[in-house]
């Protein structure tokens, strides 16, 4: 874990004893209770997504027309929808799609963007200028609008939603990582490995990339919540996954409002699921950034 942010930290905390992973975690929980709360939400969500088959009480696709619009009860905690499907089961399976799209899109967008940022910073000159202009142009498009346009061309499917959400993330990650890579590049050790005759890819991958991991992780966690939100918005607008896929945004579109009087729970629970998930990622991301970025520590 040799990262720029952490090297500053190490330098100032050189006298403190080295902490084990467990001790580091405990320290994080004590110092950042909100972040720890976020982490718990994320872990719970992951558990639900991973073990949906075991945890969910019903089949998410099984329609039962005798049970349409059942009120929340002991059998159906969150009630049932217009096809008599158990809403809680569908929300639990929905965690899978939300997490998959969230992680896949942020990971793809941040990795591509991060690599572009490193290359841009290391190469400098015309290539840097060109890539910077390109990123500026991409940034001129509001995230949701760009995702909407790409999703509309690619058509509704989960992998297309991932691509549509990942592309607007690229310039945001590139910008952050490039800024750090620029300062890393100026370090004496980079000059030293250059002088020793290391090849360009070697310098980039062995010496620059490991040192921009901290901003990469920060931007990755910061984008996760936004990506989940974007997935929900796209499926709400009818551009994400299609029925009968249990996607949170899709559950809120159309049917939820047309049955507002008869079954208000249909409009309430999926929204809570989205908000809670994004809230968890944002809390965790915020605290992680505070912990990794020495400038934001309370002095």
């Amino acid at each position: 874990m040799a990262t720029t942010a952490l090297t500053h930290v190490r330098a100032s905390a050189a006298l403190a004893p080295r902490l084990t992973l467990g001790e580091e975690t405990l320290k994080f929980i004590r110092r950042k209770p909100l972040g720890a709360a976020g982490a718990i939400i994320i872990l719970a969500l992951m558990a639900v997504a991973a073990f949906a088959e075991v945890l969910a009480p019903y089949d998410p696709y099984h329609a039962d027309y005798g049970l349409q619009f059942a009120r929340p009860s002991a059998e159906h905690w969150f009630g049932t929808d217009e096809f008599g499907r158990d809403l809680m089961t569908r929300i639990m399976y929905g965690a899978r799609i939300a997490l998959f799209v969230g992680f896949a899109a942020s990971f793809a967008g941040c990795t591509i963007g991060g690599l572009l940022g490193v290359v841009s910073a290391y190469a400098g000159g015309k290539l840097d200028l060109l890539l910077e202009r390109l990123m500026d142009i991409l940034l001129a498009f509001p995230q949701l609008i760009l995702a909407l346009a790409i999703a509309s061309i690619l058509g509704p499917a989960v992998q297309n939603v991932v691509i549509a959400i990942a592309i607007p993330i690229i310039p945001r990650a590139a910008r952050v990582v490039r800024a750090t890579a620029l300062s890393v590049k100026e370090n004496v050790y980079v000059e030293a490995v250059n002088a020793l005759g290391a090849s360009r890819p070697r310098v980039v991958f062995q010496h620059i990339v490991p040192n921009v991991v901290a901003p990469y992780i920060i931007i990755l966690t910061a984008q996760l919540g936004g990506a989940i939100l974007a997935e929900a918005a796209l499926s709400y607008l009818g551009l994400g996954s299609a029925e009968p896929t249990p996607s949170w945004g899709l559950m809120l579109s159309g049917s939820a409002l047309s049955y507002a009087e008869k079954a208000p729970w249909l409009a309430v629970f999926p929204g809570i699921a989205i908000s809670l998930g994004v809230f968890g990622f944002n809390l965790f991301g915020d605290s992680l950034r505070d912990a990794l970025d020495p400038k934001l520590r309370k002095g």
Partner: peptide, 10 residues
């Protein structure tokens, strides 16, 4: 943080 987490459409 809640304002950022709660989807506008919801």
């Amino acid at each position: 943080i809640g304002g950022l987490a709660i989807p506008g459409f919801w």
